[in-house]
Design a protein around this nucleic acid. Structure first.
Lengths: 124, 124
DNA sequence: CTGAATCCCTGCCGATACTG
DNA sequence: CAGTATCGGCAGGGATTCAG
């Protein structure tokens, strides 16, 4: 709610009392989203999963410089915030398939907005 | 460029070779934008400036828990990445007016996208 | 008023080694 | 294969103090 008045240009959306919040708050929608994307490699993992389901080792192969530990932290975090789903496969050796939840897929437009601004900024 | 293929759903936008970048890169548009927004308090400072120009002490008053040091760091960083402009006023005591550049104002839709996703996620 | 300099503390992330 | 445990380096940020 802290950043609610980001909706400056949106008609009919009053600034409201929450726009006056004076410090970073975990309940602020902007903070919620940034928290979900927080951490090195996170957006790259999401990008990879936007292309389709992946197992742990497939992600490792696609992002060779990403360590086991960090990948596992990222996936745990993204699962915690409801962006990815884990599925143990009955295979041997054991494998786990990771996929984006609907909420995870809805990050597409968000990443798109980030990509667009970065592109315009870089090309100026 | 690393996250270029975020444009999954956008027709006519090829994944391209850059979509294969396998580690976080400062030249990736997504990274550029996240770097601009990086740091606690940053989005709140931008939100405040979206409402209009502010002096250093006005920002301090609006965000009471934000220290001199961090505010000054944030403003320096935002100026460095071309999001804010600094104007020394000829007043006494000396004051400085901070305003968003066009590029800074164009962060509006980005923050909107972050706000929207955070709102939907919170309300589920 | 608007900062810069310093100190300290915490959390992130990389590397390495180990487990079911 | 898919993780967890541990350690160490480093950067972020809060509090305080000093300067232009």
């Amino acid at each position: 709610m802290a950043n609610q008045t980001v909706r400056i240009a949106a008609p009919g959306l009053p600034a409201g009392p929450m726009g006056e919040v004076a410090e970073p708050s975990p309940s602020c929608p902007v903070e919620i989203t940034l928290a979900a994307l927080r951490g090195r490699w996170t957006t790259l993992v999401i990008r990879e999963l936007l292309r389709g389901d992946r197992t742990f080792s497939e992600l490792r192969r696609t992002l060779p410089r990403l360590s086991d530990k960090v990948l596992s932290e990222r996936l745990a975090h993204l699962a915690e915030v409801g962006v990815v789903d884990r599925h143990r496969l009955p295979d041997w050796p054991p494998r786990v398939r990771y996929s984006l939840t609907p909420r995870g897929r809805s990050l597409g437009p968000v990443l798109q907005a980030l990509w667009d601004w970065g592109t315009e900024s870089r090309d100026e």
